[in-house]
Design a protein around this nucleic acid. Structure first.
Length: 415
RNA sequence: UGGGUCGUAGCUUAAUGGUAAAGCACCGGAUUGUGGCUCCGGUCAAUGCAGGUUCAAGUCCUGUCGAUCCUCCCA
């Protein structure tokens, strides 16, 4: 029996890897332009980090983490998201003692044990940025702007930015109580999942897909109407910053982050083009996460962006990824002497930085030419006894079959 | 956590319950040292796996595994 890749994982094959390289390069570029520096953190962390950071009542922590004990008896978890590890690193390296804010970006695999479907894998890949060290909405706006700009540069314009505020420690409990009071009389009519959400996360009920629940929820108190003065002021400021940059958005009170650490700003870039998993990029502010994980009382804001979903969008839009580089020259040979000569020539050209190729399957000449055509070689040269003796080579341009004579020594210059 | 769809050659797809086909790809030849186009030839499957119904199963039934999509959750 052949062994298959584990459920929910995907190989990036030769026909696609250049697309990944393309977006990774562009991602690093835009982050540098916006003043973010890369951090790389381990693929696994102490389980405790996520229990405390993401929140141990969340779905992610309760049923989606790849957790195991290592041979030293430590509980280890493959990172299910990028923010908590970035925060851990920020604290551990005492970065908060340096000039603030700290602006970082990352590019990392993440792991969640879920049922795979379109745009949802067990191992998926995220770009992300974080800004640690400021309460100002300028930071939130900057992060959203980077996401917006990046998506546009990747050729994606049919995507909506949804923004909201999930409030803070002061106003969220007030809204929560109001919402529960509103729903309590209708509790028995709610769907089963919403019943279970009533205590745990009543805000989620507002987002229920069930038609009956949608009806029941009409007129329910919305978080946005319960924001305290500070949160309201911040939300207004954020919108004004976005307006200033000409970034259009939809205020969407139903967007609710599934990770506990969010406060105030919550946003998603949403599409309906790539299946049910429409959130290509999502994030927000987390004013207490750093403290929660054992660091100082420093706020942060950031987002995660799904690379697989991004790629789906780009492919749909027919984005030009450039493609792999083709060989500049293919060296075909006839006879043993010419073979050694060709090996030498091949190596010399490569040492000069020329993309030179040669058949490694001992094909006959016709086969070698066919192969040269298949791999898209720009030029070919055939080495036989005559060429070995004279050093006079015939260079053939594959696109129009034109031929030019060239000395072996001058070959690199012609290509 | 539920639910839908689909598993035939390396790939894409055929086959009213009756001998498992074709195209692409790959290898060789026509054209002994020159690719693409054309023509000719060749290699490649016990139809995911296990049972069952039947004279006969790729086709019908049950189970199972895998893929995929939706619910859910999020990137």
């Amino acid at each position: 029996m052949a062994i298959k890749a584990p459920k929910g994982t995907k190989d990036v094959l030769m026909g696609d890897s250049y697309k990944w390289q393309y977006i990774e390069k562009k991602w690093a570029e835009i982050c540098a332009e916006y003043g973010f520096k890369e951090i790389r953190t381990p693929v696994f962390e102490a389980t405790e980090l996520f229990n405390r950071g993401i929140g141990d009542t969340t779905d992610v922590v309760q049923k989606e983490m790849y957790t195991f004990n290592d041979m030293g008896g430590r509980s280890i978890t493959l990172k299910p998201e990028g923010t908590s590890p970035a925060v851990r690193s920020f604290i551990e390296s005492n970065q908060y003692a340096m000039t603030q804010p700290t602006k970082v970006y990352y590019n990392t695999p993440c792991f969640r044990y879920e049922k795979p479907q379109a745009g949802r894998l067990r191992e998926f890949h995220q770009f992300g940025i974080e800004n640690f060290g400021t309460h100002s909405m300028l930071a939130d706006a900057e992060i959203i702007a980077l996401g917006y700009d990046f998506l546009r540069r990747m050729g994606i314009d049919d995507i909506e930015l949804h923004i909201s505020s999930v409030g803070c420690r002061n106003c969220r409990p007030v809204h929560r109580t109001a919402l529960q009071d509103f729903l309590r009389p209708k509790f028995d009519c709610l769907c089963d999942t919403c019943k279970s959400r009533f205590d745990k996360n009543p805000m989620r009920i507002l987002d229920c897909k069930s038609p009956q629940d949608k009806e029941l929820v009409k007129g329910a108190p919305m978080m946005l109407d319960y924001l305290c003065d500070d949160c309201r002021k911040d939300f207004e400021e954020l919108k004004s910053h976005l307006d200033a940059m000409g970034i259009s958005y939809v205020v969407d009170p139903t967007i609710v982050r599934g990770l506990d650490y969010y406060t105030k700003t919550a946003f998603e870039f949403i599409t309906n083009k790539i299946g049910a998993q429409g959130t290509v990029c999502g994030g927000g502010r987390y004013d207490h996460l750093i403290e929660e994980v054992g660091g100082p009382d420093i706020p942060g804001v950031g987002f995660g962006l799904g690379k697989e979903r991004l790629l789906m969008m780009m492919e749909l839009a027919g984005h030009d990824f450039g493609g792999d580089l083709k060989p500049q020259i293919f060296i075909a040979w006839i006879g043993n002497e010419a073979r050694e000569y060709s090996v030498r020539l091949l190596h010399e050209l490569r040492q000069k930085g020329i993309r030179a190729e040669m058949d490694t399957r001992e094909r006959n000449l016709k086969g070698q030419m066919k192969y040269a055509d298949k791999i898209g070689a720009e030029y070919t040269v055939v080495i036989g006894d005559d060429e070995v003796a004279s050093g006079e080579l015939t260079l053939k341009k594959m696109s129009d079959s034109s031929q030019t004579k060239v000395r072996k020594e001058g070959l690199a210059d012609v290509i």
